[in-house]
Write a protein that binds this DNA or RNA. Structure first.
Lengths: 143, 143
DNA sequence: GTGCCTACTTCCCAACAGAGAGTTGCATTC
DNA sequence: GAATGCAACTCTCTGTTGGGAAGTAGGCAC
């Protein structure tokens, strides 16, 4: 018999993303992705500016996401949402209005991942200037 | 006149990863990458198992990294290290021994990013079982 | 000379991301 | 009742990227 804790304990030992064959390597690859980060941020409610503390998970329509994530292709958006749904991070709800309304919402698992990925976006925005400076210096060093 | 706060304020408004044209979108793309996450983890010292609290930043040789990050191609390792160096997240040190020794080490900026990305790896490892379960259910739903 | 070592660099090809046009289903308009 | 519109995809084509393998540089050892 295997309890939930047993499995969690086993997982902690078993999964090591440094190993090429480990499934967590694939999972890391899946979640280390610009669109995943942005979709999670969008659905978690840190709308456009700096992620604030009062982030309320919001259900969003396909077209809203597509508008907010400027530059995402429909194919990528659909593909990313599908895999997030498969992995249990978002739920997809179809409402038979006319035209049909499809909304996406974070699950608890998705929210827990968002707590991590939101850091990525805010880090990128917060350290952008510094990185730009570093690139300038590097490129100037050996023109 | 522009004060430091002004600039910080301006940056907060200016950089928005949701916008396709924003440089922080490119930066997010750069850092949301399996190899970047793993290299940062390696250099920060969370060696193989669960990231622990006593992570001491370590300088590592090219060949050590190549061995630890199982499955990384030399091309990708070099390319990723170069871009991390350019962005000021790692330093590259050449010691003229024979044969030559090249070591990589995290900068303060790199360490600050590591605090974020380490979460990604540990999340992947911690929630692997749950995600695997979800995939099973999803795939069974509509076989 | 030839060989060996580390740390790359180059080349080729298969896989993937993005752009844009096409599809479905229903409901309103002419 | 044919045409139009809209949301949410799906398909197809093409350019970019990642991985594998083989080649390079430079110094010493034999």
């Amino acid at each position: 018999m295997t309890t939930k804790q047993d499995r969690a304990e086993q997982a902690r030992i078993q999964f090591n993303a440094f190993l090429a064959v480990c499934p967590s390597r694939q999972l890391l690859d899946r979640i280390s992705n610009k669109w995943v980060v942005l979709i999670l941020c969008a659905l978690a409610g840190d709308g456009d500016a700096e992620p604030s503390e009062d982030d309320a998970p919001t259900a969003m329509r396909y077209s809203e996401l597509s508008r907010l994530l400027a530059g995402v292709s429909q194919k990528m958006l659909t593909q990313t949402l599908r895999s997030l749904e498969r992995d249990g991070m978002v739920t997809r709800t179809v409402t038979p209005t006319v035209p049909v309304t499809v909304t996406y919402e974070l699950t608890d698992l998705g929210e827990s991942l968002h707590h991590v990925t939101r850091g990525l976006r805010s880090w990128a925005q917060a350290h952008m200037a510094e990185v730009l400076d570093n690139r300038g210096s590097y490129d100037a060093r050996d023109e």
